[in-house]
Nucleic acid binder design. Sequence first.
DNA 1: TTCAATAATTGACCGTGGTCATTTTTTAGG
DNA 2: CCTAAAAAATGACCACGGTCAATTATTGAA
Lengths: 196, 196
Amino acid sequence: MPKTGMVKVQTRTLKTRAKLIEAAQVVVDEAGYEALRVEQVVASAGVAKGTFFAHFKDKDALMEQLIGPKVDSYLDAIETLPAPKDVEGLVQALMPLVGFMTSERYVFDVILRHSGAAAKETIGPIAQNFQRTGMVLGPWLAMGPFRKDISPELLADGVGAFLIQAMALHYCALHNEMLMQDQLRIYLNAWLMPQA
Amino acid sequence: MPKTGMVKVQTRTLKTRAKLIEAAQVVVDEAGYEALRVEQVVASAGVAKGTFFAHFKDKDALMEQLIGPKVDSYLDAIETLPAPKDVEGLVQALMPLVGFMTSERYVFDVILRHSGAAAKETIGPIAQNFQRTGMVLGPWLAMGPFRKDISPELLADGVGAFLIQAMALHYCALHNEMLMQDQLRIYLNAWLMPQA
DNA sequence: TTCAATAATTGACCGTGGTCATTTTTTAGG
DNA sequence: CCTAAAAAATGACCACGGTCAATTATTGAA
């Protein structure tokens, strides 16, 4: 593995890594995440298989590099939106992200594995995304007409938990998207709204 | 695969399946779930590898047969307990189950992968467990000093969601210094208690 | 420019889950 | 019993993620 110490990073290293990620992205764009094969990636990147594992601890690490930025782009989009004024607005704001996360069973599994369930010393891109979700959501929730008796961080944590729950219940179905949305609305109403 | 129609189930079939599960359980008892190898199981069961996959769709299907009943036994124990009178009591009642679910990273992953399978055509043992969790928890929560503005089913759903969240965080480098039961207590207090 | 130390790359090899055409066993009818 | 069809078991084989000792490229100091 290219050393991550304080020594100079060889240009070659960056080139190779870029080639691998680019080749991987092409495969994903053409056939989806599930269909990605390391052998295919190294073949079209023109490097040996060993090189792949010199750059990525395992296949999942590459997946993180592909899925993480994608999730990030959805968070970018969310961040530009005005703070939602109710649960419905929040759900609508979250749906594109949810749609991506449940676009493939495999993607959802990867995200689940890495969303905090990953026992790793160095925090990966996906876990960082979840942190960022909290950072985006927290202030939003604090501004909205939501319960004020607990911290925005805790509020955001709960949104994350119910997001996972709703996706887990309906991860499979594109045709279940309405159901997932309804489910999420129910959860978030119960979680976010001050009790009458 | 042994047919599951209305024809007679051969004694041989039951024998073989029993041998496989027993052999698998021995491996698990000796080395844990993660260490289980199909080749080891078939070797000590004295059958060919193909036979294994005639009885179980894949390795995960066997894992469900091992983990499902185990989770069930914890639910049995919980069911005999008197309804908890506060969040602390609930947390204490749940901890043995939580302890098992997080005893191995691999076990948690298997459970995660199968917990949302309720939407699938054939509902597996683990998904059934999660349903049962709701059935055990619902009435309990209805009896306790918990919020009454939402249904017991929804309350139980939320407990499930926060259970997963707390367990996921337990494996996360950023949060593992906080004890899982402390985390769970915070979540469940926020979720279950009427707002002051 | 040289060269030794270090980093990156290679590809044969392995472990292990999963497949399938073939063989063996069981069942049911005559 | 005998036999043909159905069910179960077999094991050689494959796919694919991952390893590692050997090889090649890069670097920096003299």
